[in-house]
């Protein structure tokens, strides 16, 4: 399934770019992320607990940042598998300065399989977009609270 959208991050472009690749920030902002561990260059192992309505499931997966062109764009892959199914989201995030911070546009594919996909077809689109929205909301809140600023090891060792 194709997915695309845009959110605004209340930070300057370079700063926003760095935050989006910071494992500490990602771990805090990704909905349900319980642990994120670096396993290689731009690659992380992730444990995630998805809770949605009465549904919940543990996912084991990885996060990968690639094709990094600071501060303009990078490719983000998030994938996970658990008892209730598996999912993979991959897309390019493009950053541009806008009023009030940085506009982050994304376009890519979400693929869901297993029980989740077989029985939750009508919800995949809605919930994918909701999870992305939650991520950016959390990121905005983190920035606003100044938490992100202290946590981000800018310029960091990511690139």
């Amino acid at each position: 399934m194709k997915i695309a959208g845009a959110h605004t991050v209340p930070a300057a472009r370079e700063w926003a770019f760095a935050l989006l690749q910071d494992p500490v920030v990602l771990a805090r902002c990704m909905p349900g992320c319980q642990a994120l561990e670096r396993t290689g260059d731009g690659e992380y192992h992730m444990k995630m607990k998805m809770v949605l309505a009465s549904m919940s499931g543990l996912f084991d997966g990885r996060v990968k940042v690639a094709d990094s062109c600071p501060p303009e764009s990078f490719r983000l892959t998030v994938e996970g598998a658990g008892k209730i199914g598996f999912m993979k989201g991959e897309g390019v995030l493009t950053l541009a300065a806008v009023d009030g911070g940085t506009g982050v546009a994304f376009a890519g594919d979400v693929h869901v399989g297993g029980t989740l996909a077989a029985v939750g077809q009508r919800l995949i689109d809605t919930t994918s977009r909701m999870l992305i929205k939650r991520f950016f909301e959390k990121l905005g809140a983190e920035i606003a609270a100044g938490e992100a600023a202290r946590a981000a090891p800018y310029p960091g060792d990511l690139y």
Partner: peptide, 8 residues
């Protein structure tokens, strides 16, 4: 992946 996997 079969997307119509249930009667829903």
């Amino acid at each position: 992946q079969l997307l119509t996997g249930e009667l829903t």
